[in-house]
Design a protein around this nucleic acid. Sequence first.
RNA 1: GGUGGGAUGGCAGAGCGGUUGAAUGCACCAGUCUUGAAAACUGGCUUAGGUUAAUAGCCUAACUAGGGUUCGAAUCCCUAUCCCACCGCCA
Length: 439
Amino acid sequence: MRFGSPDYCKEYNMIDPKLLRSDLESVAEQLKVKRFDLDCDGFLALEAQRKTLQLEAESVQQERNAYSKSMGKLMGEAKAKGEDIEPLKLKGEQLKNDSAAADTALAAVQEQLDELVQGIPNLPHPSVPAGNDEDDNVELRTWGTPSKWDFAVKDHVDLGADLGQLDFDRAAKITGSRFSQMRGGLASLHRALTQFMLNTHIHEHGYEEVYVPYIVNRESLFGTGQLPKFEEDLFKLEDERGLYLIPTAEVPVTNIYRNEIVEELPIKFVAHTPCFRSEAGSYGRDTRGMIRQHQFEKVEMVQFVHPDKSWDALDELVGHAEAILQKLNLPYRTVMLCGGDLGFSSAKTYDIEVWLPSQDKYREISSCSNFGDFQARRMKARYRNEQGKPELLHTINGSGLAVGRTLLAVMENYQREDGSIEVPEVLRPLMNGVTTIQP
RNA sequence: GGUGGGAUGGCAGAGCGGUUGAAUGCACCAGUCUUGAAAACUGGCUUAGGUUAAUAGCCUAACUAGGGUUCGAAUCCCUAUCCCACCGCCA
């Protein structure tokens, strides 16, 4: 759980504290791209206190250790001479109290320092453009051409309802809003998409499939950065152990190597899991259909890579996600997120957005990020460098893809005038040759 | 859910409350020997934090985790987690 001593260093530092001490101005400058205002004066003041107090605490501790070590001998001598050993103990007691006082003072400052440092997001990569929100994201490329329809296109909600295979009302009855229930061909199509994505990543992109828990502990959520800042986005179990439903496979998969030194890099994992998100704070947004659900399926790619290779690996991983859309022949575009839209832990993120004819625009279907050593530092996930020394590795991940949204995109882009849906070529072998979803 | 037994360095495995960061073996690295290799011998071999120009020294911490007793804890006490065995229940 912890780096080093419980007294002197708290867990979950994120930005390298050494970097803050050596290059504070530069860090603050870089964080402006992310629209984060770093409290430099506050940091410097706390850091100065920390340094003084830590040196003090360690020196008292040193004295105490030396005294304790000599105690055995001193007591023996005292007893041999028939002297009282109480004064000897008293001095030890005094040292203990001094030490405890010094530790307490240090801990108080360290706590404030930790709080400050832990609230600092990851630094953005120099190539990340400044900007406030998604409107400032930069389109890098588009692929495919949105179809022209000579009839009025329906959205997936109407298509699904007309097919009698997608039912939000019954899902609401069973559970509540933001859930869906499917049946028949649509349910099969949904499953086939999952299977297709997994097969592609495993057999064409070199990923190893992993099966992981869908319920995780706090430490894992800290490791990937969902906690402590984003607790309200999670479903927490009413359980004294304090467990949570996973909001993404990223959490269990990335944490596979928490507190470990891995032998060989890179490691490429792909996992299919359900994802659970409370969507607190998104009331009224995307309430129609299955764009934003409390429960959805996702195929997630996670890579553990050498620090020198993470940027190349990210580009490659984006390509893996795009390949799925290309094989499904779904038009999309790839954008680079601006600083203001970047997630807390991410150094750089590419979003892939699929074309939705009903909305006449592109909507996010995958998000691919490089976290640098940010998550690795929280997780203590390391590898052995060329000198054989443990060093933080880099983590990257990306959806490949969000299955629910992919289904929706397939429905809308493959719809026919009669309301039936053509099954994309690549999915047919997985659906026993079925070519059309019909009522 | 019940009862018992465990958790020590990469692995195996010692460890009376006081030079134990931790015996020993294996593995690993370097050297000697050898034409080369093996064997044998010699030496090295955990990690984190702080200090520092330093991956040099020095200091602090760590024997699953958290708390307690003590001048002093791997060693004693409490709690949690995980593992093993048996019983009960069960997809």
